[in-house]
């Protein structure tokens, strides 16, 4: 059997470059675009068919998901600041969800299984939280490194620990999403390869597993998008409220 990680390789389809950087369009990018277009298309379908007080089926789905994110933002960031951050956090949710789900289609690609991509987003969110923290609290923001109620002698130890736990946030955020997506797809790939390469008498077993794990993967796609979003809320909320 071939290397199960082989299908994570990316081959450029359209070669492009910008200021010396290679920005070729590959299958991963196209799959992401398809996913995002579907999300945007569905939203436009809801909006163009007219949002009504008595909603249609698609509008109910849109409202439930947006209401859900809205509640989350309000819970962690606070009702006053919520409208400012809501579009950003909702976009993160739908971006991650679309990228996770589009990868479930055989032959497409999950861009969130690329550590660079999740890393860029996690780093972006991290930098955003630092930015918000300094904008809101100025130099008091360094207080986040010293948790309240810590004795003075402990401070030299607490500061490195807090720095590590701060840095661990974006890393765990990105690694979690990347690892879950990669692992799920690898398992699916291996099982499917088994199903194909064994005779039908035994082959139905891994094939059945593939179907079951496919369902599980869809659930994980939602859960990971949810975790990514809720942690973004938690991190932003933390720097806004500062303990």
């Amino acid at each position: 059997m071939e290397n199960p990680l082989h299908h994570f390789e990316i081959h450029p389809i359209v070669h492009l470059s910008l200021m010396g950087f290679d920005i070729s369009i590959s299958k991963a990018v196209i799959a992401m675009w398809v996913g995002l277009s579907i999300v945007f298309g569905l939203f436009m379908l809801v909006v163009k068919s007219g949002v009504r007080l008595i909603p249609g089926k698609l509008q109910i789905v849109a409202e439930i998901s947006l209401g859900f994110i809205k509640d989350m933002v309000e819970e962690f960031i606070g009702e006053k600041e919520a409208p400012k951050y809501f579009p950003f956090i909702a976009t993160i949710f739908f971006f991650v969800l679309a990228c996770n789900l589009i990868g479930m289609i055989p032959g497409s690609y999950t861009i969130t299984s690329q550590l660079v991509v999740t890393g860029v987003f996690a780093t972006g969110i991290f930098i955003l939280t630092l930015f918000i923290g300094f904008a809101k609290h100025g130099l008091h923001f360094f207080g986040i490194l010293v948790p309240p109620g810590v004795p003075k002698i402990m401070i030299p130890i607490m500061i490195p620990i807090e720095i590590i736990s701060m840095i661990a946030r974006p890393v765990s955020l990105s690694v979690r999403l990347f690892a879950n997506m990669t692992a799920g797809h690898t398992i699916l790939y291996v099982l499917f390869g088994l199903a194909m390469s064994t005779p039908l008498m035994i082959g139905w077993l891994p094939f059945g597993f593939t179907v079951a794990i496919n369902g599980l993967e869809i659930a994980i796609a939602f859960i990971q998008a949810y975790i990514f979003t809720i942690l973004t809320c938690v991190y932003i909320g933390d720097v806004i409220h500062l303990h």
């Binding site: 990018v29 995002l36 579009p87 909702a90």
Partner: peptide
Amino acid sequence: SLIFWSLISFAILFFLLKRFAF
């Protein structure tokens, strides 16, 4: 290419959703 396109796509999606959908 991955970083470039994912950031660009995210930004476009963000503005489109913020402008028209939400």
